[in-house]
Design a protein around this nucleic acid. Sequence first.
DNA 1: TTTACTGCAAATATTTTGCAATATC
DNA 2: GATATTGCAAAATATTTGCAGTAAA
Lengths: 152, 152
Amino acid sequence: MMDEKTYKEIQDSFTAYLTEKKLRKTEERYTILEKICSFSGHFDIVMLHQKLDETRFHVSKATLYNTLDVLVDAGLIIRHQLNSKSVQYELRNIAETHLHLICMKCGNIRELKNTSYTNFAKTLKITRFTAEFYSLYIYGICSKCKNKGSKK
Amino acid sequence: MMDEKTYKEIQDSFTAYLTEKKLRKTEERYTILEKICSFSGHFDIVMLHQKLDETRFHVSKATLYNTLDVLVDAGLIIRHQLNSKSVQYELRNIAETHLHLICMKCGNIRELKNTSYTNFAKTLKITRFTAEFYSLYIYGICSKCKNKGSKK
DNA sequence: TTTACTGCAAATATTTTGCAATATC
DNA sequence: GATATTGCAAAATATTTGCAGTAAA
């Protein structure tokens, strides 16, 4: 879990967004966000649903999909398609401080703490577009697959 | 369509891959690759299927999914999840020379010709991973949405 | 020949939608 | 109170699978 201060900032940002868009501040939305903030990496819908159920907070799939859309719109989480399986989400806050190493053989994803690419990307001159954040994916072969050869 | 020389290189690379993996060199696989090489940007399964049908080359969805998997494995195309709708594919060859600007309001995607991020990324020291290619996604607000306010 | 690949249709998985009940504003 | 949001189940989409026929090696 992130520190309390960061969590409060994210929460406040969500509240501001909901207010601005005249959307309702429901328990479901805040509880889902809270759960997401407890993850340190990627997650998908199924996993999030399970974790919520485990803490005895059941929401319908419809609500989950709806809330994730809202959170994406609010810019608090981002959507990745890192492998062929399922859509993965990640707190923008965390995604910003990592780049993603994706093994093209086994599909494994490694997060690598690195902020230099963001700094680099900020120097790019881009017209007719206001950049908010950056995601770098590096595709290649992880050391396991390199040694063992193809796993698939 | 790319120039003939590039197309031949891609085709040869596919042949080498199929040979190495002891996979068969079928007309379907080569025709699908050829069609993909005629696109200058992203495409999805539905669009590819249509375009193939238009040129009177019908393949089943099963074959299409199978072939796209093979092409991803071969490293010739990459898979993007650029918006919430559907998975999009792109020739790796083309993807490498562009970065992607994704509007968080309207979902529109703009490709921006830029290779400097690849050069930058190549300078990153990464252990236990052999990088092959790089993809930079920049999330933000496009000028249309900036002016008009939210479209959604 | 052998068996990988294809097409088709059926099975799964994923996401969206309709609608009545509920809770926010 | 008005109506956005929720839950549930059904519908719509997207993807995978089983299997018999076909074709590459």
